[in-house]
Design a binder for these strands. Structure first.
Lengths: 349, 349
DNA sequence: TCGATTTATGAAAAGGTTTACATCGAGAAC
DNA sequence: GTTCTCGATGTAAACCTTTTCATAAATCGA
């Protein structure tokens, strides 16, 4: 009797495919087949096994599964940070597609540090992820080397890779910046300023800035006349940057911000300086965060298809080897969303 | 020669502990030891092995490791959504502590659906996570059963569990609501309204509402006089809710919102109705999102220690069995952050 | 110097699954 | 009726670690 009890305890300890097979009177191979490709098992036996699985509450051991099949159903997501809601939107897009397929998302942050990115990638590879989503095209050689040597599927988002061998689902940051410059030029603004993100080792921030400057020039605005300040994507930094710009250049009539977060801060910076938006100064953001619409004034901004990027990336990782090419490059568009923070330039001294 | 080449290809295919051992002239056990408890291996041999590991770029196979040691270094995070930045803050807190310990975060969303939560939990257990972070105290029995049967460490956040056997790191939502009611009473407001989150199967939303109503009553405001509207946490819903409230009750002088997201919307709803905040109507939010400070007017709100909850949860999951109790319950405080969206009640007809 | 204790290393099993290959039976083709 | 195919199932190896136990060497106390 004591023995029986112990046996029962033993069973409880871990419920494996062996126990299921025993109860169903079949081999463990068949149980495995039912779990993975049910159509290959005769309907009767299949039903019996499924019922037992359900009754006993059997949950397969993912580690064993991953070890043997070398597929973990884990997708790594590496972003600079989630502080700014823009990456969150991509994450939600990814997860929404991954979850129904039984895949999960492993999240890691780099804090905009490319060296840290290397370590993060290594860690994710160690965890056995089937794929990794990266942000931007600028990465350390070692990062790519790791990815390639370990044959981990990966893709780049929030930008389009020039390298054809690197799958990317994103948009052209330069065009986005150009959109803003073009619109400001249309409104007759001639004295421009930019609060860019930190452009060092950040292709998105530098792309937006470069695109803005190039288009401004094309529209007849002297590039060197444009005041550029870089700052990290934080409300307070945007505010401070606006202050710096306005202190030094009272005649600036429009500011383009590399992100909506910066723009929110800059809006306050203008207020601090006693300037009204858009009457005295126009403001354009980038990202089109949900909040942009609910600011006062509503923020004119460049919309970024963040959620779609996530969904498309999911498609890519879920695709089987053959149809990989179909999903390996997705070019999306930015569009200008005009709200109340921009107005025609007033003649000012 | 052809054979040699093939052998080399074979090696490339997957670099394991065996190869490291071969090159170091030791057993695989020793390699494993160097990787896991380096201090148990003689310094010389250890160095040699480490160098080889580095040279060859060996990365341990996490699945095999997890299978054998039954620890995956994966922590699951299950939240309703990341749309609202409040959960993002916790996520960042969690990740910031987990990453240095070599652990990673697996993210899953439930969309406020407790049945979906069951499936998500099962999926995470299957992935072999070492622990699971849950939001709130309200869960299906089956969810807890799964967690217990599979002996997965778990904790509840954003609330305090009444059940002592359930670890929680959170705060009392009722007190938070009470804080708001108390302050509005202090300001002399008598005609109150609440835009609560959807309270069904949501202990946080209902706790905040209940705490608010109870405190209002204590402060001499008739509970039944308070207008309550429930809506999902979306800007547009907050706006619509405010409209409903103001249409039906022009004499309402203060609105408490169950989240800052609702408050942002409600702020707009007031503007739509031609009311000025705080001169005509006061507004209090909940969460103290970063944006709250940057709204116009700055939003008075109840601060939630989201990041700290994440950090504390990480501590709990990182703790070893013995010191588990120390971390298993962390009671945090909410505090009222007063900004410009609240003002003393004016006498109005 | 000798036995006792500790330290460093190795051999081999175990962890739970997937999958290549073998087997068996039944129906199809001739 | 015999051979072939095909579908359903079983057997056993393989995936790559960690870890227990054993062994050998080194240290220590007396």
């Amino acid at each position: 009797m004591a023995l029986e009890k112990m046996a029962r305890v033993d069973q409880r300890q871990s419920l494996t495919v062996v126990e299921i097979a025993k109860r169903a009177g079949c081999s463990i191979a068949t149980v495995s087949r039912v779990l993975n490709r049910p159509e290959t098992v005769a309907i009767g036996l299949r039903g019996r096994i499924l019922r037992i699985v359900d009754e006993l509450g059997y949950v397969p051991n993912g580690s064993a599964r991953a070890l043997r099949s070398s597929r973990s159903r884990l997708i790594g997501l590496i972003v600079p940070t989630l502080d700014s809601a823009i990456f969150t939107r991509m994450l939600e897009g990814l997860e929404s597609r991954l979850a129904p397929a039984g895949a999960s998302l492993v999240y890691s942050a780099t804090g905009y540090d490319l060296d840290r990115e290397i370590r993060v990638v290594r860690n994710l590879i160690e965890k056995g992820v089937d794929g990794i989503v990266l942000v931007g095209t600028c990465h350390r050689k070692e990062t790519l080397k790791l990815l390639r040597e370990h044959k981990v599927r990966f893709a780049v988002t929030y930008a389009l890779s020039e390298d054809d061998s690197i799958p990317s689902m994103g948009f052209d940051n330069r065009s986005g910046g150009a959109l803003a410059a073009n619109y400001l030029a249309d409104l007759g603004h001639k004295n421009l300023a930019v609060i860019a993100g930190v452009t060092r080792e950040n292709d998105r921030a530098s792309g937006r800035l470069e695109g803005f400057l190039a288009m401004a020039e094309r529209r007849g605005i002297d590039r060197s006349s444009i005041v550029v300040v870089e700052s990290p994507y934080e409300f307070s930094r945007g505010r401070a940057a606006a202050k710096i710009i306005l202190d030094q250049n009272r005649h600036v009539s429009a500011i383009f911000c590399g992100s909506d977060v910066l723009a929110v801060g800059a809006l306050h910076g203008c207020k601090d300086a006693g300037l009204r938006v858009p009457q005295d100064i126009s403001m354009i953001g980038f990202d089109n965060l949900d909040i942009a619409e609910y600011l006062t004034p509503g923020l004119t901004t460049v919309d970024v298809p963040a959620r779609v990027m996530g969904e498309q990336a999911a498609n890519y990782f879920l695709a089987d080897r053959n149809s990989l090419d179909i999903y390996s490059r997705v070019e999306l568009e930015t569009r200008l969303i005009v709200r109340e923070s921009t107005a025609p330039a007033r003649d000012r001294q």
